[in-house]
Design a protein around this nucleic acid. Structure first.
Lengths: 152, 152
DNA sequence: CGCCAGGTGGGGAATTGTGGGTAATCGTGG
DNA sequence: CCACGATTACCCACAATTCCCCACCTGGCG
């Protein structure tokens, strides 16, 4: 499981130094190959190759006639770019994806279980503040059953 | 069960000396590995690794398309950072988390059953005062069933 | 009164993140 | 098919952080 938050910066060429504590696992589990794609919430998703292959297999099998399914396929598969580590343990984040997520220099890397999310730092801070603020008000509306029973 | 309150300080590098009375249990139950993450109320949560893994397992299985579920995952898993004890029985509280909770020097460590809460001292004192003040007014509204039957 | 245990502080080395220079590669257009 | 510019990969250098070690200071206890 990947977890935790890391503040990082991309250099002028768009490269990101993957934190050392994740590097070994990515190297051994997926030969240092990762797939970067986009998320509907305005960030990028980074998958180890092995994990991505599972997701991709499920995505292609969605019913092609369904509009939502096609949209998901275009967004996720369409933007999925394979990247490898360079000698220094960095990956080059493709220009089009950087542009998509509004990333220029400061970024935040968030572990999310089987994948990572990569956010522009300013965007992340805004979003997080909004989530914290709205969190309490929405109580009592209708929580999904899975959330009701959650004890944290 | 962890209980009790301890006033502590972080040193200039952000390290916290875990009170000796908790140390043994953390060492034996979870190999001295703990996970620190954030709470929506502005403090940090500290879990023994074993306890955290249970929570995380439930969290990752929430439906990815649900907005509230994603928010929870991003906040909790996204900030969950694994920490280990140093030779002196201290843990380094990660910089981004210190910043989140407004922690610089004086802190309060609160035992909360399976986990701990870590508060900035000033924030804690304010909040506690506020809870004491507002506590009674809210009576008579409607208590959730689980609270109605509580005998303290 | 000295010893021990627990909490606090800091120096210094190793690791890790950041930044750039330079050569190789690729895609584009002539 | 070649020439050019842009992009990518490899290399080295610096700066920040983290980790490991040792030292102090305080209060309780023999």
């Amino acid at each position: 499981m990947f977890r935790g938050v890391t503040n990082l910066s991309l250099d002028s060429k768009g490269r990101m130094a993957v934190p050392a504590r994740y590097r070994d696992r990515l190297q051994s589990e997926s030969d240092g190959r990762v797939v970067i794609t986009v998320d509907r919430d305005g960030c990028l998703l980074i998958y180890p190759m092995r994990e991505w292959e599972v997701i991709e297999r499920d995505l292609v099998q969605l019913p092609s006639l369904n509009k939502q399914a096609r949209r998901l396929q275009r967004l996720l598969i369409g933007h999925a770019t394979e990247c490898e580590f360079d000698g220094q343990g960095r990956i080059l984040v493709p220009g089009p994806l950087r542009e998509f997520a509004g990333i220029d220099h400061r970024v935040v890397l968030i572990g999310q279980g089987h994948k990572f999310e990569l956010w522009d730092e300013a965007t992340w801070n805004q979003r997080r503040a909004a989530w914290l603020a709205e969190g309490d008000e929405e109580d009592g509306v209708e929580l999904p059953a899975a959330l009701e029973s959650l004890t944290i």
